[in-house]
Every structure is written in C-alpha cells, then in structure tokens.
C-alpha cells in the first residue's frame, strides 16, 4: 500500500501540473453548464429555424431545469470521453514517445503500480470534473428557475443523477485508450483511435445496436437518441459499460509490467 500511496501522490502532482489538465478542467466544468443552458434558451427563443430548430426540438419543451440537466448529461457523455481520452493519450503516450518512460525502470515503485496510479488519477480527475459540471449546472439551472418562477423539482434532480452517472461511465470508457497509447507509444495515434471509436459508435447506433455498445450507452441513456432509445438501455448494458474501466486498467497495468525496448 505504501508503494501505491507513493505512486498516487507522485501521479497526482504530475497531473495537477499538466497542461492538458489545466485546459480541460475549466472547459468541462464551465462549458457544459453554459452549453446546456444556452442550448435550452436558444431552442425556446424561436431564433433558430429550419434544420437547426428540428435538432433543438427536444430542448424546446418540458420544464427548463430538467431540460438543462438532460442536455448536460448528453454533452458530458461525449465531452468526458474525449477529455479523458486526450488525458490518457498525454499521460501514457507522451512519456513513451519522448523516452521518459525509460526512467521508470529500476525504481522501487514498479511500473505497473505507476500505471495503475496514473489511470486512477485521471479517472478521479474526470469524475471530479463530471461532479463539478453537474453541480454548476444544477446551481445555474436553479438560479434560472428561481428568477423565472419555473419549477426545479424531482424530475430535474433525476436528470442530474443520470447526467452524473452517464458522465462517470464515459470517464471510465477513456481508460482503454491508455492501453492504446501504450501499444502505439504515440499520443497522436491514441487521439486518432479515440476519434475512430467515436465515429464507429455513430455507425453502431445507426444500425440499431447502440443499446449494447459500451461507447454508445452513456449517450443513449441520457436521451440523445430519443426516449425510446434511452428506454432500450437496460441495467445489463450499463453494467457492461461500467466494466470497461477495470478491464482497461488491468490491461494497461499488464502492458506496463511487460514493457521493454524503451
């Protein structure tokens, strides 16, 4: 446990100082509520017509607070996957690309433990960003509701809970990209794989298999594909999606233990 505690402390310092973290944290925590409330306001303003209005139709009805939080969940389910993917591309891929990973050999803190701690730190950071983004959205939405005499009731709280859960699931889906970063030894290739999986997810959803595809589940669960698609996402699919994170973490730990030619 002492070795893991050391690894966690070291990785937390490194992540706190990293440029990726400094950019992504405010973007996630501030832009998600701004976009959620902004899209809802825009949908109800009547200022958007044509195809844009059709895309925003889901945000034009219902109580505003619930809509804000549904939108927040939908945005988070993609944004956190992308942010987490960039984070593991940087933290796992960059040291292998620039040779710094060679310095992790011959340490009392084993490489597998360092990799595990690195994954946990990124996952913890992503989870904190999700919680922060949902909390700020709840606060901003409650303020909007208070000034417009709109309700902020149980439906809004339920939407907040689902946004939080979907965001956490999406954060876990980023961990397998640490294994991609390790295998390719390239942050850019990892980002390419991330974009590829997001594209593949679109195809899987289009052919109707999204309810069982982990990378589609958070988004569909929050209603991106409509209420029917959300209803198709069952507990088993959510459990499978949640299992991606530990599988990804285990894989990257094994990879870092076996690392050679660095």
């Amino acid at each position: 446990m002492t070795v893991l505690r050391t690894a966690l402390r070291v990785e937390a310092i490194a992540w706190r100082r990293s440029t990726v973290q400094r950019l992504a944290t405010p973007l996630l925590i501030a832009l998600v509520p701004v976009a959620s409330i902004g899209l809802t306001t825009l949908a109800r303003s009547g200022a958007v017509g044509g195809a844009g209005a059709a895309k925003l139709a889901d945000y034009a009805a219902g109580d505003p607070a619930t809509t804000h939080l549904v939108a927040a969940g939908q945005i988070l389910s993609v944004a956190v996957l992308m942010a987490g993917g960039f984070a593991v591309a940087a933290t796992f891929g960059q040291p292998l690309a620039d040779g710094r990973a060679g310095a992790y050999f011959g340490l009392t803190t084993p490489r597998g433990t360092l990799a595990f701690a690195r994954g946990l730190v990124v996952l913890g950071w992503a989870a904190a960003c999700v919680a922060g983004a949902v909390a700020v959205t709840v606060g901003a939405s409650a303020a909007v509701a208070a000034t417009t005499d709109a309700p902020f009731g149980p439906a809004a709280w339920a939407a907040a809970g689902r946004a939080l859960a979907a965001g956490l699931l999406a954060a876990g889906l980023a961990l397998p990209f640490a294994a991609v970063a390790t295998a390719t030894r390239s942050p850019l290739a990892t980002v390419g794989a991330l974009i590829g999986v997001v594209g593949l997810t679109q195809v899987v959803v289009l052919v109707g298999a999204g309810a069982w595809f982990p990378y589609a589940v958070p988004s569909l669960w929050t209603g991106t594909g409509g209420p029917d698609a959300a209803a198709d996402v069952g507990g088993a699919a959510v459990a499978i999606t949640a299992a991606v994170a530990p599988v990804g973490a285990a894989l990257v730990v094994v990879q870092w233990r076996r690392l050679t030619d660095v």
Binding site: R9, V10, I13, A14, R17, G99, R100, Y104, G106
Partner: peptide, 25 residues
C-alpha cells in the same frame, strides 16, 4: 540511472522533480 531521458517531468519544478524522484526511488 540516466540513459537518454531522465526521471524529470518538464511540468514540475526542480524541487518537485527531486522530491518525486526520491520517493519513486
């Protein structure tokens, strides 16, 4: 050992890097 890139994180300060290296060792 230092062979190629050292156990140095460019984002950390000199003191932080030395403390981190000490703990990892």
């Amino acid at each position: 050992h230092v062979v190629g890139a050292a156990l140095v994180d460019p984002a950390l300060t000199v003191t932080e890097n030395l403390r981190v290296a000490a703990e990892l060792h």
